[in-house]
Simulated assay, not measured.
Amino acid sequence: MDAHPQMPNATTAPFRPADLPPMVTVVDTQGETLRDIYMEDIIKRFPNFKPRDDVDIWLLGPGNLYNGPEEGIRAWIDNKLAMHVSHMGSEETVRRVASEFLSPVTEVTGRKPNPGMEGPPIFVCAIPNSEYSMRLFPGAFKTREYCLDFVKSDTGEPENSPFEFELWALLGPSLYPYSMRLLSLEQSSGIRPEDIVPGAETFVLRDGMVCLLKRPGHRTVRFKVPVRVKETASAGEARG
């Protein structure tokens, strides 16, 4: 029989035993522009760097592989800009593309909450016999994506795959389920584990998904991802 973390109450429990229905959480689906989201990421990683324009924000935003010192950012960006100009034909075109890309209001999957943030729809649960916890936080609501990462239990700081494990999803009808191993967003994009920015690794799940965390020498942790509903008149009924 699978083990699952024991939590004091439903408000703080991120993971539900698989024989119970998933917790329902109510979310505000107001989006932000990609420019806002990219700037927040840049400020976290490079607090002393001031982007000159949209090109700087576009090239330095989430997903880039720059991990050098802040004093080397401008030279790195200028080199990337020259490559894009060569490909697109002119600097004016690159600047237009960057501005158009960053302007839409959108939802982003993989945007991590600040350490210490907890409570619906962000949940943290200690992993038995470990100094780490699993953290669940919302991804894009439209595609029903939830995210998972690993954090230090005492500090809340995220870490990349801090121990040997496999994360699996149980799929299909309940009578004939099948399982699928889940890779992180970064590994699925072809980034080698050693090249992932420290603390950036993220796994993408789905609302209501049943998952298994398997570790050698430990019992399997089985949990169900929360389900979100929009903040509407009917949301009150979902809470109850």
Rank of each mutant, 00 (worst) to 15 (best):
G89D: 10
P69Q: 06
V97E: 04
V97M: 12
M83Q: 11
N79Y: 00
E107R: 03
N64K: 00
E100G: 08
G61P: 06
G72N: 05
P62W: 10
R111N: 14
P104R: 09
M88D: 09
L59G: 02
W58I: 05
L102M: 08
L102C: 01
M83H: 10
E92T: 11
S86R: 11
L65G: 03
S99V: 06
I73Y: 01
L60D: 02
E107P: 01
G63Q: 01
G72V: 02
T109S: 15
A82S: 13
M83E: 10
E107L: 10
M88Y: 14
T106K: 11
E70Q: 15
G63M: 13
N67C: 12
G63S: 07
K80C: 03
N67G: 10
S90R: 10
Y66N: 09
H87Y: 05
L102G: 04
G68D: 07
D78A: 08
G72F: 00
D78N: 04
K80R: 15
I77C: 05
S103N: 14
P69E: 11
T93V: 13
E100V: 13
K112I: 14
E70R: 00
T106H: 05
H87F: 10
H84W: 03
M88H: 12
N67M: 15
R96Q: 14
G89A: 13
E91M: 06
S103T: 14
K80E: 01
I73R: 01
M83W: 01
R96I: 04
W58N: 09
G72D: 11
P104L: 07
T109Q: 11
L65E: 07
E92N: 09
A98F: 03
R111C: 10
E71H: 11
I73F: 07
N64P: 07
D78M: 06
